[in-house]
Design a protein around this nucleic acid. Structure first.
Length: 427
RNA sequence: GGAGGGGUGGCAGAGUGGUCGAAUGCGGCGGUCUCGAAAACCGUUUACCCCUUUUUGGGGUACGAGGGUUCGAAUCCCUCCUCCUCCGCCA
């Protein structure tokens, strides 16, 4: 059950949050109606249960003392309660179901520091690293470079799986593998524990991180309760679903490489060329579990960690803060890192780092215990790409291309490429 | 896939219809003792929900999950999940 109490106590905050986001609504009237009904049903059913329990205890005593008549009389008394309890239980179930559905559809509340805005054109730039690459020749797009170099095969990708799939070969395949290892190694050095999770997940996990119930259409649904993960965030975050962590464990820093699967329903016509928007892509993900008071600092250091990869690869990028209208469902605050892509003559998202604060923790039941504080508290969860591997490869191909159609391998990646320094067209 | 056996509190492990949120041991926390520590001894030790409330307090639920039988379920029945052992199959 979601935190109904939170909604009950903060309706104005939720109103404001929904108003500042795009396409976010909640039925405040309905909520309070259901909430009141739920509580009155609970009050009644619990007093009946208390009564029943007391009489049952009495019956037990009668039985032991051999007072059969008294016991029988008492049984009659409880039987009357029974039907009423069953009826109320059922009503409670259906009210809570409606209430949960209503609450589950409410997006996270943007942090106070998030700027108001309608769409991505309102996202303020936070900082810029490097300068857009300049060429003294006509640069090619990665979809041409990849094909000319013989390392990306779009036609055969489509033959194997369909549109928006592609096949890497030779040094293209090797670069994918090199990038994954390079990124994970960097995160390991920064204290992230490495995981290798299943790429199939279930409803409860997807609900916990906020993909379900709202975004079912974006997911590959392969079995009644099995889905392909759209991001490793789902698995890394749900590792601790339903657990109570110890305050001393925090913060927990996790990382994993996984393929990510997205239906991309509704994005027809966008990014149709190249490897920017595809149904299956590789990504190295970072997830953190943090104490509430520490989570905003953890967000900053997570962005820095993602930026470090781009800096080591010497790829120009900038960082933007997502405005309220562009913020994802589960995020309270989010930075996008966008890499310079010559073919777009623009920056393109390559990492998204979010602080979900207690939003996912509430849905997934991830708490921590501080012996100094009474009860349990919700952890804050954060996630960020570190980085999207396919888009990193596209950025490398385009930014590192030479006049003769070859591509120089970024210095930091050469050891991971088995010493290959330049990728040239195959003969 | 077939056969069999399990899932109880932080851990180990009792309990097979009532006084059991649950013996006992270990661990944890507090205390006595000590210069300090160990040992010993004493006490304490879950989560969620509802009502009331300043704190306090009262009540409900939970023994893998859900449903059923019963006045009453950790205990009986059904379904599912999951773990273990053996057989088969397989990267």
């Amino acid at each position: 059950m979601l935190d109904i109490k939170f909604v009950r106590e903060n309706p104005d905050v939720i109103d404001a949050a929904c108003a500042s986001r795009q396409n976010a609504h909640w039925d405040r009237e309905k909520f309070f109606e259901l909430d009141a009904e739920r509580r009155s049903v609970i009050a009644e059913v619990e007093s009946l249960q208390a009564e029943r329990n007391a009489i049952s205890k009495q019956i037990g005593l009668f039985m032991r003392e051999g007072k059969k008549d008294e016991a029988e009389a008492a049984k009659q008394q409880v039987s009357a309660n029974k039907e009423r309890i069953a009826e109320l239980d059922q009503r409670r179930g259906s009210v809570e179901e409606k209430l949960t559905a209503l609450v589950a559809a409410i997006p996270n509340i943007p942090d106070e520091s998030v700027p108001y805005g309608v769409d991505d054109s309102d996202n303020p730039e936070v900082r810029r690293w490097g300068a857009p690459t300049e060429f003294d020749f006509e640069p090619k797009a990665h979809w041409d470079l990849g094909v000319d170099l013989g390392i990306i095969d779009f036609d055969r990708g489509v033959k194997l799986a369909g549109t928006r799939f592609y096949l890497l070969g030779g040094l293209g395949a090797r670069m994918e593998r090199a990038l994954i290892n390079f990124m994970i190694d960097q995160h390991n050095k920064a204290g992230f524990k490495e995981f290798w999770p299943p790429v199939i997940t279930n409803h409860d996990s997807l609900f916990g991180t906020g993909q379900l119930p709202k975004f079912e259409d974006d997911l590959y649904h392969v079995q009644p309760d099995l889905y392909l993960i759209p991001t490793a965030e789902v698995q890394l975050t749900n590792i601790h679903r339903g657990e109570i962590l110890d305050v001393d464990q925090l913060p927990l820093l996790y990382t994993a490489f996984t393929p990510c699967f997205r239906e991309e329903a509704g994005s027809a016509g966008r990014d149709t060329r190249g490897i920017i928007r595809v149904h299956e892509f590789d990504k190295v993900e970072m997830v953190k579990f943090s104490k509430p008071e520490d989570s905003m600092n953890q967000l900053e250091s997570m962005v820095a960690e993602a930026e470090k990869i781009l800096q080591l690869l010497k790829l120009p990028y900038h960082v933007v803060t997502l405005c309220t209208g562009d913020l994802g469902f589960s995020a309270a605050k989010c930075y996008d890192i966008e890499v310079w892509l010559p073919s777009y003559n623009n920056y393109k998202e390559i990492s998204s780092c979010s602080n979900c604060k207690d939003f996912q923790a509430r849905r997934a039941g991830i708490r921590f215990k501080d012996p100094a504080v009474k009860g349990t508290q919700l952890v804050h969860t954060l996630n960020g790409s570190g980085l999207a591997v396919g888009r990193t490869m596209a950025a490398i191909l385009e930014n590192y291309q030479n006049a003769d159609g070859s591509v120089t391998v970024p210095e930091a990646l050469v050891p991971y490429m088995g010493g290959v320094e330049v990728i040239r067209p195959e003969d």
